[in-house]
């Protein structure tokens, strides 16, 4: 079985999140030949790490990405583990459950965009963006104040280049 796993312990400070996204995109550019999947992976990584930078109790985090094109089922998984304020654990788990259980992701996304217009602090749209635009399934589990958010996408068929590349970011 071919598994390409990247695991890192990171200080997720806001100024570094873009660099983390660029690194994982460049790293997996050699492995994931589906440009759309690569973009979704990069966006998901960025949004998850930015959540850590903004909301975690400290900036320490574990980022783990596993690409299993030969898995059963074939999948891509991005998991971020961090500590958050204890009072935020239950609301986060409830949000992930809400995003995971909806029958109409796009309708929920539009609803949350409208709700977010009145919100002053952040967008509150990172996880629903992962779910809707990234077409990822989301799960969350907590042990005390340590929370792991896991985003997964199915990988269809053998690796194949499906979209022309742009040459990445400068």
């Amino acid at each position: 079985m071919t598994t390409r796993t990247l695991a890192m312990s990171l200080q997720a400070i806001p100024q570094r999140v873009g660099a983390i996204r660029k690194f994982v995109q460049a790293y997996y550019d050699l492995v994931i030949r589906d440009a759309d999947l690569l973009d979704r992976m990069a966006m998901t990584t960025h949004e998850l790490m930015e959540n850590v930078a903004k909301y975690a109790a400290d900036s320490s985090s574990e980022l783990r990405i596993a690409y299993r094109p030969d898995g059963r089922p074939p999948c891509l998984e991005i998991a971020v583990t961090s500590r958050i304020a204890p009072e935020n654990v239950a609301p986060l788990l409830e949000l992930v459950e809400r995003l995971s259980s909806t029958d109409d992701v796009q309708a929920l996304y539009i609803q949350m965009i409208r709700e977010s217009a009145c919100r002053e602090d952040g967008s509150g749209l990172g996880l629903i963006r992962i779910r809707a635009e990234g077409e990822m399934t989301l799960t969350a589990e907590a042990v005390g104040d340590c929370v792991c958010i896991r985003a997964s996408a199915s990988v269809s068929g053998p690796p194949a280049k499906t979209t022309a590349r742009t040459g990445g970011e400068p």
């Binding site: 949004e47 930015e50 965009i113 217009a117 749209l125 963006r129």
Partner: peptide
């Protein structure tokens, strides 16, 4: 545009 995060995307939504 190489990337836009959800916070900046919210500005377009608004």
């Amino acid at each position: 545009v190489a990337f836009i995060n959800s916070c900046c995307l919210k500005d377009f939504f608004n």
